[in-house]
C-alpha cells in the first residue's frame, strides 16, 4: 500500500462560532481522482485552503505529499497545483503572456516547458488571443495550464467546470484522466452530480461534515435507503398526495411530467401499482429508475 498523498485527521476549522470544517478524516492515494460534492458553504473550499496551508486548522491536522499542511506549506505549494473556482487571468494579456507570468511566479523560465504545458491542455492555437476574448471553456483550459506549469504531483481543482457545458466538460475530464494516468493525484470539488460520477471516489460534504466518501457505485448501494421508481400517473396532484402518504414510500418528488419515488427495498411493482389504483389514479407507466448521486446526496443531506 503506497503512502497516501493526502491525510486529513480530525481536520477542523472554525470562524468564530461557525464550524466551517468539522472533524474531517480521509486519505487520498497516489494517482487517485477524489471528488468533493457539497452545497455552497459546506466546507469544500475551506478544506482545500487548509490542505494548501493557506489556512491554519483550528483542530486536527493534515499532511500533504508527506509535509505538514500548515507548517510546511511552502513545500506543498511548490509541488501542488491549484485551480480556484474564480481563477484570475489577466484579461489584457494573451494566453501565452498569462502563462509566462504565472510560470515566472514558480521560477520557471524555460520556454520549452511553457510550450509543453500549452500543448498538454491544447490551447496552443489560441496562444496569441487575449484572455478576455476566450470562451468559458478555453479560459478554463488556460487556468488549468497555469495550475500545471510547474508539473505538480497533486492538483486541487475547486469547481473547475462551473458554467461550462457538458461537451467542454467532457474534454476537460479527458485531460484530468490523462494526468491521473501519469500519476498525478486529483482532488476536485463540484456542484455537478454528473461530474461527480467521473471521480473514482466521492466525498459528500454537508455543513462542514464529511458524510460519506466512497465510489459512486458503493454510495448508491449504501446511502439510498431503498429502490427508485419512475411513476407516470394522473392526475398528477392526486398521485403526489397518494404517494406522500403511501405505504412503503420513503421519498417522492416531482420530475417534470411524472413522479420519482424511493420506496422501501423489495416493494413489488404490483403492490405499488395496486396502491395507486386504489387511490383512483390512472397509472400509465411504472418502472424502476436508475439511482443517481443526487439521490445519494438528498438521502444523506436531509437526514
Amino acid at each position: 500500500m503506497p503512502e497516501p498523498v493526502v491525510i486529513a485527521e480530525n481536520l477542523t476549522r472554525r470562524f468564530g462560532d461557525f464550524v466551517a470544517v468539522d472533524h474531517v478524516n480521509f486519505t487520498v492515494a497516489p494517482g487517485e481522482i477524489v471528488g468533493y460534492l457539497g452545497p455552497n458553504g459546506s466546507g469544500k473550499t475551506t478544506t482545500i485552503r487548509m490542505l494548501l496551508g493557506l489556512l491554519e486548522p483550528s483542530e486536527g491536522r493534515a499532511s500533504v505529499l508527506g509535509f505538514d499542511a500548515f507548517r510546511q506549506s511552502e513545500e506543498i505549494r511548490a509541488r501542488a497545483g491549484y485551480m480556484s473556482q474564480k481563477f484570475a487571468l489577466y484579461d489584457d494579456l494573451t494566453v501565452w503572456e498569462n502563462l509566462v507570468f504565472y510560470a515566472g511566479v514558480y521560477g520557471i523560465r524555460e520556454k520549452e516547458r511553457i510550450e509543453a504545458t500549452l500543448d498538454q491542455v491544447e490551447v496552443g492555437e489560441h496562444r496569441l488571443d487575449l484572455a478576455r476574448d476566450l470562451s468559458a471553456g478555453w479560459r478554463q483550459r488556460l487556468a488549468m495550464a497555469i495550475a500545471l506549469v510547474h508539473r505538480p504531483k497533486l492538483l486541487f481543482l475547486d469547481e473547475p467546470t462551473s458554467g461550462v457545458d457538458p461537451a467542454a466538460r467532457r474534454v476537460f475530464w479527458d485531460l484530468i484522466y490523462a494526468l491521473a494516468g501519469q500519476g498525478v493525484t486529483i482532488f476536485v470539488t463540484t456542484h455537478y452530480m454528473d461530474e461527480a460520477e467521473y471521480c473514482e471516489r466521492v466525498g459528500i460534504m454537508r455543513e462542514g461534515k464529511l458524510l460519506a466518501l466512497d465510489t459512486p457505485a458503493v454510495l448508491k448501494a449504501r446511502a439510498i435507503p431503498g429502490d427508485v421508481w419512475e411513476v407516470h400517473a394522473s392526475p398528477l396532484q392526486a398521485a403526489l398526495d397518494a404517494c406522500e402518504t403511501g405505504r412503503g414510500v420513503l421519498r417522492v418528488g416531482l420530475a417534470g411530467d411524472h413522479l420519482r419515488l424511493i420506496t422501501e427495498r423489495g416493494l413489488q411493482q404490483e403492490q405499488l401499482r395496486a396502491g395507486l389504483a386504489a387511490s383512483g389514479l390512472t397509472v400509465a407507466r411504472l418502472e424502476r429508475g436508475e439511482p443517481t448521486l443526487e439521490d445519494v446526496f438528498l438521502a444523506l443531506a436531509r437526514d
Partner: peptide, 25 residues
C-alpha cells in the same frame, strides 16, 4: 435564464419542485 447556476443540489431540488408545482398546479 440559468436560474440554478452555482446553486447547491438541495436548493436546486427545492427550486425545481417549486417550478413543477407552479406549472402543474
Amino acid at each position: 435564464d440559468e436560474p440554478t447556476t452555482g446553486v447547491d443540489p438541495v436548493t436546486r431540488q427545492d427550486f425545481w419542485q417549486l417550478l413543477i408545482r407552479l406549472v402543474a398546479f
